[in-house]
Amino acid sequence: MRIAIASGKGGTGKTTVSVNLALSLENVQLLDCDVEEPNCNLFLGHPLQKVEDVGIQVPAISKDKCTSCGKCAEACRFNALAVLLTGVILFPKLCHGCGACSIACTKGAISETIQVIGSIERSASHTHGIELYQGVLNIGEPMASPIIRTLKGHIDNSRTVIIDSPPGTSCPVISSITGADYCILVTEPTPFGLHDLMLAVDLVKDLQLPHGVIINRYGTGNDGVEDYCSENSIPVLMKIPYDIRIAQLYSEGTPFVLRMPHWKDRFQDTFRQLQELTGRF
């Protein structure tokens, strides 16, 4: 089974749920798709090794062949090229690596080179039986989706796959959660949490993904989230109480199931519930 963990709002406990769920199950592959801020391994501390670089194909323009005709810049819909009398300049941060410019150039002046924008890493040893893969977006690089797509190419279907998605509801989130059998939406019982949960629900409905909610920091805030879930027949899979010990363990980077092992049973129960809901194992 592939379980995606998402949340409309950041900081609600997505990574907490991903890591603690992973630690409670057997034979897990954990994919950290929050490539702007990959944090799962801060809680697992696995030694990591690089699997591959992720790059996009950007144009390299031959000064000799280029006639400054401007067709490439005209074809580029991302404004990544500027044509000067002396030749063409590329703004690498704007380039999406789509290849339109090289198709448009009739002078054969454009070849392509790989520009590395990030990398894929995996755990060198699988402590706790978890195989961790994470994508890392290099500083100053704007595009997360190519890294997420490459990362998802490493999915091992013989394992229970847990996908920690980035926060929000935009494109990288879709890249992360499509193909999942179930999506767990993590939220907190506050007006902010409810507002962003509703956006996330719109998204998973749009993608037709079966979904349920985990409420984190339960006991703070109000009943808004629970009321919303019951009105919309969205199952509340688990409530993690607001507990200063959990907050402190989190701050140190310790997954709370390691110190409060009875929570492993709770996560296993949730997993069994998902198996029943999806009919997958």
């Binding site: 990574t15 702007e36 941060k93 977006l137 595009m143 926060p167 929000g168 701050s251």
Partner: peptide
């Protein structure tokens, strides 16, 4: 949140970036 496209767009040309953080590993 994050460090990608939207963050870059929101800070470029700003006079001050005010970062709110908390004492946790993440």
């Amino acid at each position: 949140p994050g460090i990608g496209c939207s963050v870059i767009a929101s800070i470029s040309g700003a006079d001050l970036v005010f970062i709110v953080t908390e004492p946790s590993v993440s």
